[in-house]
Each structure stands twice: as C-alpha cells, then as structure tokens.
C-alpha cells in the first residue's frame, strides 16, 4: 500500500479504468467530429471547429490518463511498456519510410491512409506486449 491507501492492484485497476473511460470519450468525440459535419449539422464550420477542439481537449485528458497509468505501474511493467513503445516507434519509422520509398519508386500502388499507420502501430505495440509478457510469465508460479 502507498500514500493513496490503495494496494498496487487496486491502484492499477483504478488507473486502467480511468484510461478506458477517457479513451471511450475520445473515440466518441472523434466519431462525432468525423461524421457530425455530414450527418448532424450539415457542414456548419463553427460547430465542426468546436467538435474538433472538444476532441483535442478530451484527447489531452486521455494522454494524461495514460501517463498516470504508466506512472502507477511497477518497474517491470514500465520496462515492458518502454520496450514495446520503443519497438513500435522504431518499426513505424523504418517500415513507414521503406513503404514511402517503395511508393515513390512506383513499386507499390496501394493508397495509404493515416489510419493504416495507426493500425500498424497498434498491432506492433500489442504483439510486443504479448510476447514480452509471455516471456516473463513462462514457468509462472501462482
């Protein structure tokens, strides 16, 4: 237990739930900002700008919740996260630029989108976390 009066497990759970809430809120504001101009308010610029500003503000709160969650982890969990983030960043840079080279030389005709990069980063991050946790949990003892 620490100064918050919560055990490590309780604190971790609370931080994860808090992050999940802000992530859902951010996704909702992103969806509203994406589809709203066409389906809800017929391309009124002021409302579109307001929706985007709200999305950014909620996004900042999500980043802070993510930071809090990382800070609440123990040192091994933080190391796993750091390694996963490092590999994800490196892989995105290397494969992103390699793809850009392939495209500029005309070898790839597939039209890329920012969502493809987000998906690539998400999958890389997830695989890294799973592999590293599996390595650590081998021969686990309850």
């Amino acid at each position: 237990m620490n100064q918050t009066g919560l055990t490590f497990k309780q604190r971790n759970k609370q931080n994860t739930l808090n992050l999940a809430k802000w992530t859902v809120a951010w996704l909702l504001t992103l969806a509203i900002a994406s589809f709203g101009p066409h389906f809800l308010w017929q391309d009124q610029t002021v409302i579109t700008v307001a929706a985007i500003v709200i999305n950014i503000l909620v996004g900042v709160m999500m980043i802070l919740a993510n930071k809090r969650q990382l800070q609440g982890m123990d040192e091994l969990q933080q190391r796993v996260q750091l390694n996963a983030m490092g590999i994800t960043l490196g892989a995105s840079l290397v494969f992103g630029l390699a793809y850009s080279l392939l495209q500029s030389s005309g070898l790839v005709l597939f039209n890329e989108d920012i969502s493809h990069l987000v998906l690539f980063m998400g999958v890389t991050y997830l695989v890294c976390i799973l592999v590293m946790n599996k390595q650590l949990n081998d021969e686990d003892e309850a």
Binding site: K9, E75, L136, D140
Partner: peptide, 20 residues
Amino acid sequence: LAELLDVSRQTVNAIEKGKF
C-alpha cells in the same frame, strides 16, 4: 509478497526466476 512490496505478482515471479 507482491502486495507487501507494492508491485505486481509477475514482477515477484520475474525477480525470483532471475529474469528481472
């Protein structure tokens, strides 16, 4: 032990196994 040390059980396990 993890609760007493304020870490996760996986961390205690990894330390015991010499992985961390």
